[in-house]
């Protein structure tokens, strides 16, 4: 079936299968930041935005983004830059595999909550699992990033 949607600000028309996942479609579109992790909607690795809301692309049917706006990290690089620098400085990337999904959810969080507390951040990001870091370095990076945002 034909699908018309907007990917990172560009209008696209693609031929898709009715049961194709958004994850599969986005990787086929060359969006390497979108990675699969768990297949059961539990880990957050595959997080992208549909109409600015973070969703799990592994459980989202591609057909459903008809007429909608999809954003991956490739389309949010400028907004992500500061957070990525903070993460790198803390060593919070480690294997890096879960980072893009985490960054996309964190950016959505900053948009939605403005200046969240540590507790609010942990709740918002609870669906982003990371096995390497134990999360603390991510939380430090988020705190530094939030501090930078406040001083602007």
């Amino acid at each position: 079936m034909k699908l018309n949607f907007e990917l990172n600000g560009r209008k696209l028309e693609r031929e898709i299968a009715p049961d194709e996942t958004l994850l599969h479609l986005l990787r086929a579109c060359g969006m390497h930041s979108v990675r699969g992790g768990c297949d059961t909607s539990n880990c957050g690795v595959c997080t992208v935005w549909v109409d600015d809301r973070p969703v799990l692309s592994c459980g989202y049917l591609a057909a459903r983004v008809e007429g909608r706006r999809v954003t991956t990290l490739e389309g949010a690089r400028a907004e992500a830059g500061e957070l990525m620098n903070c993460l790198a400085a803390e060593g919070a990337d480690q294997c890096g595999y879960c980072s893009p999904g985490f960054i996309m959810c964190a950016l959505a969080m900053f948009r939605e909550l403005g200046d969240p507390s540590d507790e609010e951040m942990r709740r918002y990001l609870a669906g982003n699992l990371c096995r390497c870091t134990g999360y603390e370095s991510q939380m430090r990076a988020l705190a530094k990033c939030a501090e930078g945002r406040r001083s602007k």
């Binding site: 909607s41 539990n42 973070p54 799990l56 959810c105 609870a126 982003n128």
Partner: peptide, 12 residues
Amino acid sequence: VSPIVGVQFRNM
């Protein structure tokens, strides 16, 4: 509903 998996999951 707030403890269910994560924000992304609850957005769907």
